[in-house]
């Protein structure tokens, strides 16, 4: 898993719940890293372990943690590390989401040791888009929902995200409808 994901979990827990909680999460997950480096690859099991430990330490459900993490990833961690790049990805939420597949293609090109998820866009229209999410990593669709809400906040464009296809219920991938109404302005 991309180091930025773990870093984001660390930032989320530390900023919103306190450093002692983060130390408790790390201890519970058996993680000994002092800090994570964004573009380094870490074992997926470590990330799942951190999420699992966070649910226990913080008293939240896995979905709550994953959603919070997804949103936080966009608004804080990714914004902090890739803010200019993120904001250059589109003038509007629509342009941004349309660029998302290409962004991940480029991540895979730059970091061949990482295994980013794949996105596709369809049904583009003025106030919405359908986003298709393909990943071999199970159970992370709530992260995507959180991220989409984060992007909506980043572009100051209120949006409604609807999870329409579920891989864990038999579909070949997850699908999300993102609608932002008429307020798409930036």
């Amino acid at each position: 898993m991309h180091g930025m994901i773990n870093k984001s979990i660390e930032d989320l827990v530390t900023i919103q719940f306190g450093a002692d909680k983060w130390e408790a999460v790390k201890k519970k997950a058996g993680v000994t890293e002092t800090a994570f480096v964004s573009n380094q690859s870490y074992p997926d099991a470590m990330t799942y372990g951190l999420v699992g430990a966070a649910t226990e330490v913080l008293g939240l459900t896995a979905d709550q943690v994953l959603y919070a993490f997804g949103e936080f990833w966009v608004t804080h961690t990714a914004f902090k590390g890739y803010g200019d790049m993120l904001m250059s990805a589109g003038r509007t939420i629509g342009e941004f989401l349309d660029y998302l597949p290409l962004f991940h293609t480029r991540v895979a090109l730059i970091f061949p040791n990482l295994k980013p998820p794949r996105f596709e866009c369809s049904d583009r229209h003025e106030n919405g888009i359908t986003l298709h999410y393909f990943s071999d990593r199970p159970g992370l669709s709530m992260v995507v929902v959180g991220m989409l809400n984060g992007i909506s906040k980043l572009y100051k464009t209120p949006a409604v995200v609807t999870h329409t296809k579920f891989k864990d219920k038999g579909a070949d991938h997850d699908e999300f409808l993102v609608n932002w109404g008429a307020a798409d302005q930036k």
Binding site: K7, S38, N39, M85, I110
Partner: peptide
Amino acid sequence: VDLLQLVQATSTSLHDAKQL
């Protein structure tokens, strides 16, 4: 664009390494 993304990633990694 790829180079920009690479520059940004490298810069972020350096920042992280410095923090570490």
